[in-house]
Nucleic acid binder design. Structure first.
Lengths: 245, 245
DNA sequence: AAAATTCTTGTCAACTTGTTCAATTGCCGC
DNA sequence: GCGGCAATTGAACAAGTTGACAAGAATTTT
């Protein structure tokens, strides 16, 4: 957090060109500009020059503060990720205390979905949601290692909680269940208007409340009622139903 | 002299196919090179020069045949999309004839998932799956309009089938259900190794059969058993989607 | 007050980018 | 044969890219 002696809010607009000499604030302004640009055009689609222009700083400042384009990119995650992770952990702790199985699963699903959905509908950080969505569908993300570094730990925690809530499920079922939740979440977060278009405006990811309600209901049902093959959790010969193709 | 004529014909075919003077063939080579590159680095992450180099053709040829980078990008979809759409339509026709509700829903889910999952595991066209995954999480996709043009029609068909199979569901429930299927599918298709890493190798998107089994089971359960909480999910205005800053 | 440090800035050069151009090649019907 | 035509080529273009530098301003330390 920026620790300025003076009130930062007051100065934010006033002294842009004048004599605002504050590293932390400049950094912040750059990061926010970068966040918006990266969200709109992707890592490769945006130039540091445009970020600099948007942040109203000279280009060289970006290299000075973040040591390059990728450093700036990582800085965004370093700023935002803890926010989400903490909220998820809190949600999981909540779920742990719930005795009823059905509600417990629901709370776990909520713990994963709600922080991100909320973030998306918050104007200020909605860009970050889209960056996140991009990152998971980019092979380079592995190279950058951002997801792994920031989100793998919480992923294990969630799956552990799921396994505890659904003890009769196999490891595979738990894993695929978690991946499904994530997929739905990411797809919704990344949405660029298609959901609203297809539903003729009836479904709107911006409406955090409604979206969360429907998605939680879906994934809760998926986790509670899905059986991989036939009846038991065992791996019988699967795929006996009609063969298309 | 039938024989001579046949020989001539044969030689002509061979010559045409071997010669670099074959528009269709060079087009194809360019498209395939582009597909691989776009999948790995995204639309903005790759230069036409690299594509040209990979296809072993001069750069100018790309612009000649496809009228630019974006034209080339669209050409990929024009080649691949019909394949998937047709398979889905076939799957839906299958589902339509199924009397049992539960099996019907399962078949619809399969009709959506299987063509894409199969494509992903096919080596030759696995790149396209990743391109598709990128496209849906790119705001520019709206600008390009590729998804809308090629996949919106089949989306309506699927939702129609879902509505018919689950008549008591609201339009919103059907829409979110479909979005969920798509989200899970896209996330799985786009996966860059995280699923396998998190599951310690137990879950592998490359394994088309197992993946389809688990995902179909999940989404089938989601559609069949999900009920929006209490029934009153229709919270109208919650957040004003007003001014940005 | 002077010096040292941190932060900011304009400018620069080497390099890519997507696209266009004029010229060339091979194939066809005349 | 010989133009007409589509396909191909290498070169050139203008615009934009990144990262670096040294010099200047602000802040802190001496």
């Amino acid at each position: 957090m920026a620790r300025t002696r003076k009130n930062e809010q007051d100065q934010k607009v006033i002294a842009v060109e004048a004599s605002q000499r504050n590293a932390a604030m400049t950094r912040s302004r750059i990061i926010h500009a970068a966040e918006a640009e990266f969200a709109d055009h992707g890592f490769d689609g945006v130039s540091v020059r445009r970020i600099a222009q948007r942040a109203d700083v000279p280009v060289a400042l970006i290299n000075y503060h973040f040591g390059g384009k990728e450093g700036l990119y990582r800085a965004i995650f370093e700023m935002r990720a803890p926010m989400i992770v903490d909220q998820r952990i809190a949600g999981l702790r909540f779920a742990e205390m719930e005795p009823d199985q059905e509600r417990k699963v629901e709370m776990i699903v909520k713990a994963v979905l709600v922080p991100n959905l909320h973030m998306r509908s918050t104007e200020k950080s909605s860009s970050y949601a889209r960056i996140l969505a991009r990152e998971v569908s980019d092979p380079k993300s592995h190279q950058r290692g951002v997801i792994q570094e920031f989100f793998d730990p919480i992923a294990y925690k969630v799956m552990e909680a799921l396994q505890k809530a659904l003890p009769d499920r196999s490891v595979e079922e738990i894993n695929w269940g978690y991946q499904a939740i994530l997929g739905v979440m990411v797809y919704t977060m990344a949405d660029t208007g298609r959901i609203s278009r297809l539903s003729d405006g009836r479904c709107d990811p911006e409406d955090e409340m409604a979206t969360a309600t429907y998605l939680v209901a879906l994934m809760k049902a998926a986790l509670l009622h899905a059986r991989a093959a036939g009846g038991g959790a065992g791996q019988r010969h699967k795929h006996s139903t009609g063969g298309e193709r």
